[in-house]
Amino acid sequence: MKFALSLLVGAAAAQCGKRSPSYLTWTADSFIEHGVEKNFHYTQATLYLGYEAAYELTGDEKYAEWYRNQIDDAVVLEDGTIKDWDYEFYSLDDYRIGNNFLWWYERTGEEKYRKAADIIREQINRHPRNQAGGFWHRRPVYPNQMWLDGIFMADTFYAKWTKMFDNDNTTAWDDILKQFVLIDSHTRNHTTGLLAHGYDESKTAVWADPVTVNRDSGSAPLVWDRAVGWYFIALLEAIQLFPESHEGHSILVGFYKDLAAALKKAQHKSGGWWLIMSEPYPGMEGNYIESSASAMFTYGWLKGIKLGLISKGEYYKAAKKGYKLLTNRFVRADDECLLNWEGTVEVGSLCCNGTYEYYISIPLQTNDYKGVGPFMLASYEWETY
């Protein structure tokens, strides 16, 4: 069954002579060897966060060189345009890579990275919105829908760009805050503190039940773990960017603390979290402890402790348990002693009926960057604690 993942890996590091390994550098080295397709997809953008962390940890230029080779010419052209970018396709997923462009601009000062980021920022200005001002997840297939995923994909880039180039623009900060407030107010269950996958303002989607979470919310019925993970990371990113003088900073800190507490209640005794977190599904046949969100939540706690948002006394033990699960259950060494990452669900979408049967039908993937990148972030926080 899906949840019967190998527990060999506490031994995997030892098999490779890595009895006290840096899991971050082992992962970074391994995926250089595995090879990573060059494009601007959000999965690659998520993995590259891990290489930023590996470079921060070690200062080893091989990670920066490899990362830059992934971006230059294959994604960002010399004139600052983005290879194969569609100026008429409006999908929040495609905007995540803008954060990576800004990392390179900060590092090098090269205008091509600023120009590439500006392309995405200008596309955000044109992006369709629902009547309340929230970004559609994608046009035309998800009209009036906001997903937790989209907050991670677009709004922290929007905040990062604003911080760097337009910090005094209160209207922009208000707009960024609006995205978080809308998704939180329509999807958070105030009993559990967890958030459903998304909502449809028009309430026309087959899954948009007006009474499941908040009356008249148009919310999806279920809490899908990775969507919550995207949102958890996005909150941390935005909190570090928002001006402390803006009311949004304290609002986002409140959202983060509430969700951190809800995740503590939802953590399984193994240290991980169920694919579908809403009752009555934890422990139900077909459900399983999933690796990408388990990495995201573990990272989110460790980072929150470091930032002083949550207390070490309350969260460190749970975070330690979570990280131990990641390394014991989801890391596998192959015959060449390259690290492989297991147990990440391929996708989760509100394209369909939003049922439990839909979510558990999606296959698991090995070496899915949506799990690898968050594991690298969690490893960085653990190894620098």
Rank of each mutant, 00 (worst) to 15 (best):
L57K: 15
N100M: 05
F135I: 05
N353R: 13
L222Y: 02
S250M: 10
T171H: 13
Q365A: 14
A28H: 07
A318G: 03
D79N: 15
G254V: 04
V331M: 09
L195F: 07
Y113G: 03
L182G: 05
I276V: 15
L326V: 05
S6N: 08
P21M: 01
I176H: 03
N100Y: 00
E279Y: 08
V75Y: 00
W103S: 01
W26D: 06
E88T: 13
L275P: 00
K320Y: 04
Q15S: 14
L259G: 03
L177N: 00
T298D: 08
W66H: 05
Y299N: 01
N69V: 14
G229T: 07
G133A: 13
L326G: 04
L252D: 04
G271F: 07
D29T: 08
K264Y: 10
A74C: 12
R138N: 13
A74I: 12
I176D: 02
H197K: 02
A378I: 06
Q179E: 04
W207V: 02
N39T: 11
W147L: 12
G59I: 03
L364W: 05
L77D: 06
K320E: 06
F375M: 13
D149L: 09
Q145R: 06
Q145F: 05
Q44W: 02
W301F: 07
L235G: 03
K163F: 12
I151A: 02
V211L: 10
L148N: 01
Q15Y: 12
W161T: 05
S30P: 04
